Amino acid sequence: MADIEQLDAARAMRRAMLGDAYVDSVTSDPEPAAAEFQDYVTSMAWGVWARGGALSPRDRSLLVMAMTAALGRMDEFRLHAGATPRTGVTDEELDELLFQVAAYCGAPAGVSARRALKDVRAAARQDTKEGA
């Protein structure tokens, strides 16, 4: 696959998993360096999602959340936890994931991720109430 085709596939996967509103918000900066940075991030991070292989988007989502929680990257953890309706990860799977994080990465990582998940779920409930 040509580089531009790979980037287009990565862009499409990013939009499918995170939604148009989020992607539009982070790619709207007109500065050339910002656009180049977004293409780089999209190519590297989302290119691996779009490459196919044995892992489903659901599996990749679980892995990304485990890794971001383990690394203490709570902004990214929140982003991906909020995308679970699009990735196919269930609430029960995400709850179980946090036990794994706490056991293998330490209680502080698990506790931080649990707090972040609580915030994500509260925001989702609020959005549902406002949309009703």
Rank of each mutant, 00 (worst) to 15 (best):
Y40H: 11
S25D: 03
G19S: 00
G82N: 03
P32F: 02
A124S: 05
R58D: 06
R60I: 09
R58N: 08
L55P: 09
P108L: 08
M17E: 06
Q126K: 13
A124G: 04
E31T: 13
A34C: 00
D127S: 15
D39W: 06
V41Q: 03
R115F: 15
Q126E: 12
E92C: 10
D91L: 14
R114K: 09
A122G: 07
R78Q: 12
A107D: 00
A122R: 09
S43K: 15
V64L: 13
T90F: 01
E92L: 15
A81F: 09
A102V: 04
G52L: 08
R86W: 03
A103F: 12
R58V: 11
R60P: 09
E92P: 13
A33L: 04
E92K: 15
A21Q: 13
V41H: 08
Q100A: 08
A66I: 09
T42N: 03
D29C: 00
V111Q: 07
Q38E: 12
V89A: 02
G53P: 13
R121M: 05
E96M: 07
D127Q: 14
P57V: 10
C105E: 04
V26K: 11
R58F: 04
Q100R: 08
S61R: 04
A107P: 01
M67A: 13
F77N: 06
A45N: 14
E76Q: 14
D24H: 03
T27H: 08
R115E: 10
D29M: 01
A33R: 14
R73T: 06
D75K: 11
W46C: 03
V23H: 02
V23K: 00
R58Y: 06
